[in-house]
Design a protein around this nucleic acid. Structure first.
Length: 201
DNA sequence: GTACGGATAGTCT
DNA sequence: GACTATCCGTACC
């Protein structure tokens, strides 16, 4: 997608426009992709937004141009990926929360199966079901091989991680409260593809 | 199928 | 020193 796409809409509209598009990572180990089926918007005047209070080193990518990738560490062991929206200086973004796997499913399954927790001594890794591969923001980052040391602050038009146009057939968008937050918990900034079984819940 | 607690480390107060 | 845009294993239905 051209960078103009990410700047063309307000953040909540962009979060909906991204549904049905395909997130792609062309990594050294192989190409993986999945259709975006769940997103959340984070706005500048929104207490749940990382950039709500103060401009800091961590959130710097959020202030960059639309189409910038923002990857951060959460709970000490997982990462989440966001697409930065709006113009330079405005810190808003769309969190990608779930994908319907399309390409490189075997590679995604391996990455998830041998993720950190499974490597404890004596632990025998179990296969991961297709519908569990990218069902959640931390899971999809693992499956796709996204890493903040590589992708954070990159632009979608020059990164190994990028987005292809809408490929999903007709669908309805469901709007709901965001997951896992305490501040701004009642805001209806979560968007899902209705009746899609790859949505996180 | 839901409910709960622990893991874990960077970030900010 | 507290908090976090999460996940997984266990327990129980």
């Amino acid at each position: 997608m051209p960078l103009s796409f990410y700047e063309a809409y307000d953040t909540r509209t962009l979060a909906q426009k991204l549904l049905g598009c395909e997130l792609v990572h062309n990594s050294p180990e192989g190409l993986t992709s999945g259709i975006i089926v769940e997103t959340e918007a984070y706005l500048q005047d929104d207490p749940a937004c990382h950039a709500y209070r103060k401009r800091t080193a961590r959130t710097e990518p959020m202030y960059s141009a639309a189409g910038t990738i923002y990857v951060y560490l959460i709970y000490g062991m997982y990462q989440c990926v966001n697409i930065v929206s709006r113009e330079d200086g405005c810190a808003e973004a769309v969190l990608i929360r779930a994908l319907q796997p399309t390409e490189g499913i075997e590679l995604m399954e391996m990455r998830r199966r041998f993720s950190r927790k499974n490597l404890l001594p004596g632990f025998v890794p179990k296969p991961v079901a297709l519908r569990e591969l990218c069902k959640g923001p931390g899971k999809l980052v693992q499956a796709m091989g996204i890493d903040r040391s590589i992708h954070n602050a990159q632009s979608l038009d020059t990164s190994s991680l990028y987005i292809r146009p809408q490929i999903l057939g007709h669908f309805e968008i469901e709007i709901s409260k965001r997951i896992g937050i305490t501040q701004g918990a009642d805001l209806l900034y979560r968007y899902t593809v209705k009746n899609n079984r790859f949505v996180s819940k």
